[in-house]
Design a binder for these strands. Structure first.
Length: 568
RNA sequence: CGGAGUGUAGCGCAGUCUGGUAGCGCACCUGGUUUGGGACCAGGGGGUCGAAGGUUCGAGUCCUUUCACUCCGACCA
């Protein structure tokens, strides 16, 4: 393609709302165009080309793994979602609307219901299983706060796959196959990533893993081990139980006057006791369907922090919100002096696992200005669950190594769904005995448009994009320094024709602009390699440029073709 | 939804306090010069000043209402 014939509206100026490298360069390079802000983007020719290339890698690897591509309707009748119960449950991110006949519809944010519907209508026998169907299609989620360009748009391109099996074991086999397939995809795209344990979130299901592209600008915090392969999203990370070198305080059970001592720090100082031996009691309002809610207390060691996602899962709530002091008072609780024992009527408490069999603990007395010392939780009957947020420096449960935080961009997520959708939606098959059983499912997603952003986040410098081999919009950029110089132009045209005939996807910068302007655009666009035809043509030489590191090597004209073929 | 802010040419902004001809830079068009790191000269095109209502002889500017977007916090591929 010739630059002069392509729509590549590059700009010098940065849009004022863009802060992330990927956002800035995708806009400045004319890859995408914002549509009135608010997380909607048009893909211009170059952006569309990159999108197609990324999509091609995804498709090739999935097809190789035996998956089949389909395309589901984007506008979805609400009835399916009412059947699964998610029409109400999904919340405001689900865009709902009515057609002219006043029927409810949604724009698909994910397609479990649709795919299950497709399969339940067409698959009846164990002989037709297993099956892995996927699509690469638009999704719409009315995000609370879209931002960072393609990183968190409202409309985005996603690959979503769903597998159907006769048994748990077969689903796990497919889950492992998908993990391997995803690794191949991200590796081919040239990404540095990590597979981590994850929370299953709104999709539901048991085992789930996320594919995190490592980048400081990532929105997710992931916990990784220094020594072993362990990695997990902070929402799901586990550790070896905490320990304390200081001996437990010796005290028999008693009520203690602690005027105005409301925080863990103050309490620790007051009793001269390590926070490890204090009980931190966090109150949250748990929200459920149909506007129901209740106040729940979460008890953990004073040295630990509550992980909200874990807490939310522990009480099976849709969401947790903070509780005001007034609401606490109404429920008979006193902020600053709450404790898991001696509770008023109707308040539930969840204990962190690490409080199991703890003794010599100090907690709030649920009475203003009083704490209880010498509490023992040995052998108590209570709801215990994992509630702690893993901190940097905690010990790895697998190998004892030190855990630390890093940032990642969630580019893929795979779930072991089980029968969470197949059962309510009646997606059954007849087994060998003629018995009707629900299919066991897995689901697998990749944020395809987000990948463009992720690639740039990991591959850029201060002048622009550096596309990886499999994602680049072109393989080679031929830059004619001065098109008025007939010799330069002629060579450019000749190389362009030859490269094209050799199957190299090449763009010829045949614009009238000066060298500097063209070079700046080359760097901004981030094509992996360039051939610069300019001044040193007088000595029979051109330059071979490598975008990463901006390495420039003089090459004799008659050798350039072989250099390109070898290195591009 | 809570807090902060912005809407003026395709993009980035000034003008609003103190009402009186709609401006600047980039981009774009024409002609000419220039050609190894975002050139220069001359000429030119492009505006419901977010929307509605009001005050006024006169509103981008003052008043009221409203909409949209951006930034900081809870969601997700």
């Amino acid at each position: 393609m010739r630059f002069t014939q392509l729509l590549i509206p590059t700009t010098k100026e940065t849009p004022n709302d863009a802060t992330l490298a990927s956002h800035i360069y995708l806009i400045r390079g004319g890859f995408i165009q914002s549509v009135g802000g608010s997380g909607l983007y048009n893909f211009l020719p170059l952006g569309k080309k990159v999108l197609d290339k990324v999509q091609k890698v995804v498709k090739e690897e999935l097809d190789r793994a035996g998956c089949q591509e389909v395309s589901l309707s984007f506008v979805t009748p609400a009835s399916l979602w009412q059947e699964s119960g998610r029409f109400e449950k999904y919340g405001k991110e689900l865009l709902r609307f009515k057609d002219r006949k006043e029927n409810d519809f949604i724009l698909g944010p994910t397609h479990e219901e649709m795919m299950v519907n497709l399969v339940r209508q067409t698959v009846k026998s164990y002989k037709q299983l297993p099956l892995n169907l996927y699509q690469i299609n638009l999704k719409f989620r009315d995000e609370i706060r879209p931002r960072f360009g393609l990183m968190r748009g409202r409309e985005f391109l996603m690959k979503d796959g769903y597998s159907f099996h006769i048994s748990e074991e077969d689903m796990k086999r497919e889950f492992d196959l998908m993990e391997e397939t995803y690794k191949k995809i991200f590796t081919r795209l040239g990404l540095e990533f990590r597979v981590v344990e994850a929370d299953s979130g709104a999709i539901g299901g048991s085992g789930s893993k996320e594919f995190m592209v490592l980048a400081d600008s990532g929105e997710d915090t992931i916990v990784v081990c220094d020594k072993c392969e362990y990695g997990a999203n902070i929402e799901a990370a586990v550790r070896q139980p905490g320990q304390c070198e200081v001996a437990a305080p010796e005290a028999t059970f008693a009520k203690f006057h602690t005027p105005g001592i409301k925080t863990i720090e103050a309490l620790s100082a007051f009793f001269r006791v390590d926070p490890y031996y204090l009980v931190k009691t966090v109150a949250k309002r748990a929200l459920y369907d149909e506007g129901k809610s209740r106040i729940v207390l979460f008890a953990l060691r004073g040295s630990d922090e509550l992980q909200e996602v874990k807490a939310c899962n522990a009480v099976d709530a849709n969401d947790l919100v903070d509780v005001s002091e007034e609401e606490l008072a109404e429920a008979g609780l006193v902020a600053g002096f709450m404790g898991p024992t001696t509770l008023p009527e109707g308040i539930t408490v969840i204990y962190d696992n690490e409080l199991k069999n703890a003794s010599s603990m100090i907690c709030g007395a649920n009475e203003k200005d009083y704490h209880l010392v010498g509490n023992s939780f040995v052998g108590i009957e209570a709801h215990f669950d994992d509630l702690v947020a893993v901190q940097e420096g905690d010990r790895c449960r697998c190998c004892g190594g030190a855990l630390r935080y890093t940032k990642g961009i969630e580019a893929g997520h795979i779930f072991q769904l089980g029968t969470r959708y197949s059962e309510p939606l009646g997606c059954d098959f007849l087994d060998e005995n003629g018995k009707s059983v629900p299919m066991v499912m897995g689901t697998y997603g990749i944020g395809v448009s987000r990948l463009l952003a992720a690639i740039i986040e990991q591959n850029h410098d201060e002048n622009g994009c550096i596309w990886t081999k499999e994602s680049a919009p072109f393989d080679l950029y031929i830059l004619v320094s001065n098109i008025k110089d007939e010799e330069q132009l002629a060579l450019g045209e000749k190389l362009y024709a030859v490269m094209k005939s050799r199957g190299i996807d090449v763009i010829l910068d045949d614009r009238k602009d000066r060298f500097g302007a063209k070079m700046k655009d080359y760097e901004l666009l981030g094509i992996p390699h360039a051939v610069v035809i300019g001044k040193n043509l007088a000595e029979g030489k051109v330059e071979f440029v490598t975008r990463r590191g901006m390495l420039k090597e003089p090459v004799a004209v008659d050798e350039i073709l072989s250099v390109v073929e070898e290195r591009v």
